[in-house]
Measured scan of single mutants.
Amino acid sequence: ELELEEVDLYRMNSQDKLGLTVCYRTDDEDDIGIYISEIDPNSIAAKDGRIREGDRIIQINGIEVQNREEAVALLTSEENKNFSLLIARP
């Protein structure tokens, strides 16, 4: 049973970094989820404190993420200042 949490992050300008590194968990081929492998200690996500390494990203801004490229594109989008992440953890 996964616990879901919605985390809203806000950046003042497009130079601010959310600070999330995303990856696949390669140990299970059936698991195509996108996971947070690293959080930059000086980033918006780290200061917010709710997202943890190992969390799975389900949605970004209401869009279900299917692959790492999509997640990276959404997280690094210059147009977005508000990010709503739906994350899951066991």
Results as ranks from 00 to 15, higher is better:
G54W: 05
I57H: 00
V22E: 02
A73R: 09
D16R: 06
N13D: 07
S43K: 03
G49V: 04
K17Y: 12
L2G: 15
D31P: 07
E78D: 15
E6R: 13
D27Y: 06
L85V: 09
I60K: 01
A73W: 04
I58F: 05
A73I: 07
L2E: 11
V7W: 01
L74H: 12
N42A: 14
L9A: 01
I34Y: 13
N13E: 13
D55L: 02
N82S: 08
E64R: 04
G62I: 00
D8L: 13
D27M: 15
E69K: 08
D8I: 03
R25W: 04
V65M: 08
V65P: 11
S37E: 05
A71G: 05
D30N: 09
D55Y: 03
Q15G: 10
D27S: 11
L75Y: 01
V22G: 02
Q59R: 11
V65C: 14
N67S: 10
E29M: 09
G62Q: 05
L4A: 13
D48K: 03
R50H: 08
L85G: 01
S84G: 10
E64Q: 05
S14E: 07
L20I: 15
E53W: 07
D16G: 07
E53I: 06
R25A: 08
S37Y: 06
C23M: 12
N61H: 02
V22H: 02
E38G: 04
Q59H: 06
A45H: 01
L74S: 08
N13T: 07
G33W: 12
N80L: 14
G49D: 13
I39P: 04
L18K: 00
E3N: 15
N42W: 05
K17V: 14
Y35H: 14
R52N: 13
Y35Q: 15
S14H: 14
A73H: 06
D48Y: 02
I51D: 00
L74I: 04
D27C: 05
I87K: 02
V72E: 13
G33Q: 11
R50N: 04
D30I: 08
I39F: 02
E79F: 12
R56L: 12
E1M: 12
S77R: 11
A71N: 02
I63M: 06
I57P: 01
L9M: 05
E69F: 06
V72L: 10
E29R: 13
T76M: 14
V65S: 07
P41K: 09
R52D: 09
E79Y: 13
L2S: 14
S14V: 12
E70A: 08
N80G: 12
G33F: 15
T76G: 06
A45E: 01
L75E: 01
R68L: 13
G54P: 01
A71W: 04
I51M: 09
N61Y: 01
S14G: 12
G62Y: 03
E38Y: 06
E6C: 05
L85C: 03
I44E: 03
I63F: 06
G49I: 04
D30A: 04
L4W: 06
K17P: 12
N82E: 05
E70G: 07
A73S: 10
I36D: 00
I34A: 13
S77C: 12
T76V: 07
T76Y: 08
I87E: 01
D8T: 01
K81G: 15
T76L: 08
D55M: 06
N42G: 12
V65H: 04
G19V: 00
R89A: 04
Y24C: 15
R68G: 08
E79I: 10
V72W: 13
S84W: 04
G49N: 09
R25C: 15
E29W: 04
E79N: 12
S14Y: 11
N13C: 04
N42L: 08
Y35F: 15
R68M: 13
E69C: 14
Q15P: 09
A46C: 05
E6T: 13
T21D: 02
R50G: 04
D28H: 13
A46E: 15
D16S: 10
I60A: 02
Y24E: 15
A71Y: 05
L9T: 01
I57E: 00
R11N: 01
K17C: 13
K81L: 06
Q59G: 07
L9C: 02
I63P: 00
M12D: 11
N61P: 01
E29N: 15
D40N: 13
K47Y: 12
Q15K: 12
N80M: 14
E5S: 10
R68F: 13
F83A: 10
K17S: 11
R56V: 06
I39M: 11
E78S: 13
D40M: 14
L9P: 00
V7A: 02
E69T: 09
E29V: 12
P41Q: 15
Y10C: 12
E6W: 01
N61M: 03
E70T: 05
N82I: 10
K17W: 12
N13G: 11
